[in-house]
């Protein structure tokens, strides 16, 4: 039987590392992560806090893309569209209707879920490259639609919309950058826990089954069409929430911030972080935000070339992304641990 897998994610299970059982190891990493995240707003300058906030926002957007591509096997080069819809939903609510920023996230989530679900329906008929092209068309279309005179009254046309950065509530001694960081982290934790639970659930197994073998999945009684379009909706929801957060963080939205280059960046973040890896998306977010800056640092004129070379090197060193590399190292450590234990 020949089965062509488009996405390979298998890695040996990380049973134990250097004698420690996995739960203990995981808990240590988790606690360390929390400590680092909690100290960041108090030791770094505002600009770096802002950048890390953005990286986490990108990570959430990439997580949305990963649910679709990594776990459900549907390609998308158009997630900048959902990011834009989320961002504009937040901006229009705050600027046009004076609604508190707290409510923009659920609203962006709902709007993007509906958009994603509806786009997922025709996408059911398209596979691989055809789906990539259709979503790419969406990414190209969105800036033009946002600029068009039909919706100019709402979107502010080419000018975009400026919004005011929210201040910390309850009189917390934080400036707006610090508060936005805390807010983003809180939202991110909810989103990541949600994604983790979704993937580990019965539904998540259905998604993975559809990715690995749609025919077998439908033979097992999985409603392939429903799950595929639902995944599209959930994926758009995640990216839309990220978009709304991004609008808050930058406090400005304009059509040209959401070109297909954003879609390509999200896709790069997905692959570099690791396809079908939830924690890998954090690395992806950092990569998407910082590597272009680093490349520019090397050489102004050749920034694009340096970026390309870094990207190639990363792909050579980690063909399965950062998550794949970590899995590989962990499994090596496990083997060594076993060998020395004997």
């Amino acid at each position: 039987m020949m089965l062509r897998r488009t996405i390979e994610t298998r890695g040996p299970p990380a049973a134990e590392v250097a004698g420690m059982a996995t739960p203990a190891w995981r808990v240590i990493v988790f606690v360390l992560g929390i400590v680092v995240l909690a100290t960041i707003p108090f030791v770094l300058k505002n600009f770096y806090i802002f950048q890390i906030t953005l990286a986490v926002i990108y990570a959430i957007a990439i997580l949305g893309l990963n649910l679709l591509t990594g776990f459900n096997g549907q390609f998308s080069l158009g997630h900048s569209a959902f990011y834009a819809i989320g961002a504009y939903t937040a901006a229009i609510m705050m600027d046009g209707f004076d609604i508190s920023y707290i409510w923009t996230l659920p609203a962006a989530a709902m709007v993007c879920f509906v958009f994603g679900f509806l786009f997922g329906l025709p996408a059911l008929r398209l596979e691989n490259i055809y789906l990539a092209l259709a979503t790419f068309a969406l990414a190209i279309a969105i800036p033009q639609v946002l600029k068009s005179s039909l919706v100019e009254h709402w979107t502010g046309g080419v000018q975009g919309i400026s919004i005011i950065k929210p201040d910390a509530p309850f009189g917390l001694p934080l400036n707006s950058d610090q508060w936005l960081y805390v807010y983003t982290i809180l939202v991110a934790v909810v989103m990541y826990v949600g994604a983790h639970n979704l993937v580990k659930s019965r539904t998540g197994r259905a998604l993975i089954a559809i990715r690995d073998h749609p025919i077998a999945a439908s033979a097992m009684g999985i409603n392939v069409s429903l799950y595929k379009s639902l995944t599209f909706g959930v994926s758009a929801l995640y990216t839309g929430v990220a978009g709304a957060l991004g609008a808050l963080a930058i406090s400005f939205v304009a059509p040209d911030s959401f070109t297909f280059q954003l879609a390509v960046a999200l896709f790069v973040g997905l692959v570099v972080g690791g396809v079908a890896s939830i924690s890998g998306t954090l690395f992806g977010g950092l990569f998407v935000l910082f590597v272009p800056n680093i490349a520019e640092h090397f050489s102004k004129g050749l920034a694009g070339a340096v970026y390309g070379v870094i990207l190639l090197l990363v792909i050579y060193l980690m063909p399965t992304g950062a998550a794949g590399l970590v899995r590989l190292i962990v499994s090596r450590l496990v083997q060594q641990g076993r060998a020395s234990g004997r």
Binding site: T6, I7, E8, T69, V264, F267, V268, L270, V271, V272, V275, G301, L302, A303, G304, A305, V306, Y307, G308, V309, L311, L312, I315, Y316, P319, T320
Partner: peptide, 22 residues
């Protein structure tokens, strides 16, 4: 990249695009 997953190939194309353009 012969044995890398397809998505990694696509990223390599994107890298090539950036390099040639710049």
């Amino acid at each position: 990249l012969h044995n890398a997953p397809v998505l990694s190939h696509v990223v390599a194309f994107i890298a090539l695009l950036a390099i040639l353009n710049s």
